[in-house]
Write a protein that binds this DNA or RNA. Structure first.
Lengths: 240, 240
DNA sequence: GACGTTTTAGACAATAGTGTCTAATTTGAC
DNA sequence: GTCAAATTAGACACTATTGTCTAAAACGTC
């Protein structure tokens, strides 16, 4: 999905590129099919066709279906983890406007980690097969939302220490921040649709606005109290 | 699951009660197995064994696997919908302490609709099979979160009109309320574990506290601003 | 152009699942 | 007790899938 490859879904068979890019084709196709059909519903032949690869090639690289499945999960998890890291580093060290900074940060987070194809695949696989593969689930918990949670908590601790926010439980605030960001998005994601840039922006704006009303330090921020109705941004509201 | 029935999972075959309660046994067992294995992974034989019923009986009642599946979904949706209605009516018309009322309400909601067995089954089936059965998904959207959302929005509109809350988008507030309630719970639910009463209570308390910090009318509520650290309830915080 | 590796198509056995059919048994109602 | 309806076990044909095997073809490298 994210890997650079030719997307020809039904190449009749022969040569398309170097021999080792087949692994990537297989992983991507398998991720797609596992996500769409579930582990039990996905057939190796379907994956082979979608990858433009012979079935035997799949069995050569990954001994059996389960091996392929865990390889897919690890692959998606690694990619998501990497992009997570790079996003977390983008929050400005010396903030200008806190609301704008947080909003832009939330947009980057949703666009590149939570709502992209990898995020969708990961969420669906964890939900549908997580109970059957506890070790896989544990890895996701540590590398995915676990890491994002603690990183966010650290960010909020920094902002609180600097006087911009006021809270007594950073982990709780991190969980609530993520929950608020998802509030307008999760319905969309269940539908399998990926939100438009405008929907992402609205969702982030709504989330951050409410978050800051709850957590911004008393005198520090203009968006804190009262000005409720006369709002500078007319499209802050509205269903995502 | 919720239906009154004997839970004997492996009754060798014959007679246990009236003939028409077989339908319920089948529906409950099928819900369980579909939830655990997914549509493709669930086998009719497995369902038959779990229901303590012959395979042929299943084919007599529900012509084929798909018919059984949609019957299961409708059954779970109806139960959830009914309990949803009864919960929504429990919010006191003349509020005493808004924070306590909202918290108790949130606990009832999560305990009886969102986090019980039916809620888990519904969420998982929608997530894993929703894209394959759009009509089923549409029904869930209307009867489930759709309804809960508008009902909550109406409640918040009433409270705003009465001066207890201050907001300009009731639907958004409803979505955020639900998101905040889920913030501490969704990790637990993905694990397949059902939260304890204490976890439910903490989650509701955390959610309502933050919600009111963002949305309570300026002078109406003591939990609004400033008293942050000296809190009357020592266990409001803490991982769910 | 030759060579070793990778890939491919296709056949193959083994297994599992769906949905049908039948004959025997059980059930509930009268 | 009788009778009709429901239920049952088991066999059955059919299809799909997994995983293996083999011989042929394509590939990259030299």
């Amino acid at each position: 999905m994210t890997n650079p490859k030719e997307a020809a879904p039904k190449a009749t068979g022969h040569t398309q590129r170097g021999q080792c890019s087949k692994r990537l084709s297989i992983l991507d196709a398998a991720a797609e099919v596992f996500c769409r059909e579930g582990f039990a519903g996905a057939s190796i032949d379907e994956i082979a066709v979608e990858a433009g690869v012979s079935r035997q090639t799949i069995y050569n690289h990954y001994r059996e279906k389960e091996t392929l499945f865990t390889a897919v999960v690890e692959d998606v998890m690694n990619r998501t983890n990497a992009s997570l890291f790079s996003i977390l580093a983008t929050f400005p060290g010396t903030p200008g406007n806190l609301e704008d900074d947080l909003t832009a940060f939330a947009v980057r987070l949703t666009k590149n980690c939570l709502c992209n194809q990898d995020g969708k695949i990961l969420r669906k696989l964890v939900q549908s097969e997580g109970e059957r593969y506890p070790q896989l689930f544990e890895g996701w918990r540590k590398h995915g939302p676990g890491r994002i949670g603690t990183a966010l908590a650290a960010l909020f601790a920094r902002l609180s220490h600097g006087g911009a926010l006021q809270m007594d439980d950073f982990d709780l605030a991190a969980r609530q921040f993520l929950a608020l960001v998802n509030a307008d998005l999760q319905m969309l994601m269940l539908f399998g649709e990926s939100p438009t840039a405008e929907q992402l922006d609205n969702a982030a704006r709504n989330a951050v606005h409410t978050f800051l009303r709850a957590y911004s330090a008393p005198a520090a921020n203009p968006a804190t109290r009262l000005p409720m109705r006369a709002d500078s941004d007319p499209r802050r509201t509205g269903q995502a």
